[in-house]
């Protein structure tokens, strides 16, 4: 388990308890839900950081959560804790010359990733721009509520935005509890919902508006829940935690692994996904042969999400 200890070392000084102690020693004790302090809550509260857990601890946590979810949702969930595959660094490509702004990706993502329907959370926002306008640096003034009979609309183009899976993610730096981190291997920025304290610093730090907050308990019809989940991905979230796109970690971090849901649904084939380290992947083909750019490159976030123009 040298891999395990290597990971643990990278996760320097992880301790939510230490943070809570330091930040507000008295309040920390009060924060334990004493009234509901049954064994499960107790275990949950003192759960170790994901990157410090060994396999046995992970399977205990998974068993506890699967039980908790079964009781809460009446659905039996499968929670994977798969680690990154060796020799894989994920990259994503989006062809702006094809996207027609139909939003099918938005809803495929909602379904696959158990996003709250009510209140509504969308990990993908599709922005509309007038052709010829200055735009890349003016995302805030784009239109995302467009609703014509059919798309594309003449004179406009569309740019879906989701987590850009930065190599240098400002959200990770902002997190006071290390509840969010970037996997050093496949590069996915993940969140441990059991460590997130809901301070939303990461949301303020993200230049792409890619992080979303659960103001209430997520509202999802039981029959629409996706029971195939990853601990760091689409498992049901709690009230008061932050969530975002994980490149469909529950699908992609597998061998063989499936394409993300947004890639598969796209009717125009604008979305590309693959291994940046594999010279035969479609993402490498895009980077080598097409005009590519990354959003807000000047911020040095180094996204692994590449926009390109096939034509």
């Amino acid at each position: 388990m040298s891999e395990q200890s290597g990971r643990a070392k990278r996760a320097r000084g992880l301790s939510r308890r230490r943070f809570l102690k330091g930040a507000a020693s008295g309040v920390a004790a009060l924060a334990i839900p004493v009234q509901a302090a049954d064994a499960m809550t107790w275990e949950a509260f003192f759960q170790r950081h994901f990157r410090e857990m060994n396999d046995a601890e992970k399977s205990d946590v998974v068993a506890r959560l699967e039980k908790e979810y079964a009781e809460k949702y009446g659905v039996s969930f499968n929670i994977s804790t798969h680690e990154a595959l060796p020799g894989v660094k994920f990259g994503y490509g989006l062809d702006l010359s094809r996207c027609i702004g139909c939003r099918r990706c938005v809803y495929a993502c909602v379904g696959e990733n158990n996003q709250s329907r009510d209140p509504q959370i969308h990990w993908i926002s599709v922005l509309r721009f007038r052709k010829g306008d200055k735009w890349v640096n003016d995302l805030e003034n784009s239109e995302k509520y467009y609703n014509p009979e059919t798309v594309p609309e003449p004179g406009y183009f569309y740019m879906p935005v989701q987590c850009q899976q930065c190599e240098n993610p400002p959200c990770v730096k902002a997190c006071p509890t290390q509840a969010t981190w970037k996997d050093e291997d496949d590069g996915i920025v993940v969140i441990d919902y059991n460590w997130c304290i809901g301070c939303r610093y990461c949301m303020a730090a993200c230049p792409y508006g890619a992080r979303h907050f659960n103001w209430t308990r997520p509202g999802i019809p039981k029959e629409e829940l996706n029971p195939n989940t990853h601990y760091l991905g689409n498992r049901p979230r709690y009230v008061g935690v932050v969530e975002k796109c994980t490149f469909c970690i529950q699908r992609t971090r597998n061998d063989p692994g499936r394409y993300p849901a947004c890639v598969e649904i796209c009717p125009v084939g604008a979305r590309k996904f693959g291994n940046l380290l594999d010279p035969n992947s479609e993402i490498r083909y895009c980077i080598e042969k097409k005009r590519v750019f990354r959003l807000k490159e000047d911020l040095n976030t180094q996204p692994k999400f590449f926009y390109f123009f096939a034509t």
Binding site: G93, R258, Y259, P267, E282, Y285
Partner: peptide, 27 residues
Amino acid sequence: RDWKAGVHGKRTGEWNGKKVYRLCVHC
């Protein structure tokens, strides 16, 4: 050429395994 590489049109299935293309005439 782009289509064969999975870049024009699309492929579904496994990013590191079996892939299904779409015919040009599907779109």
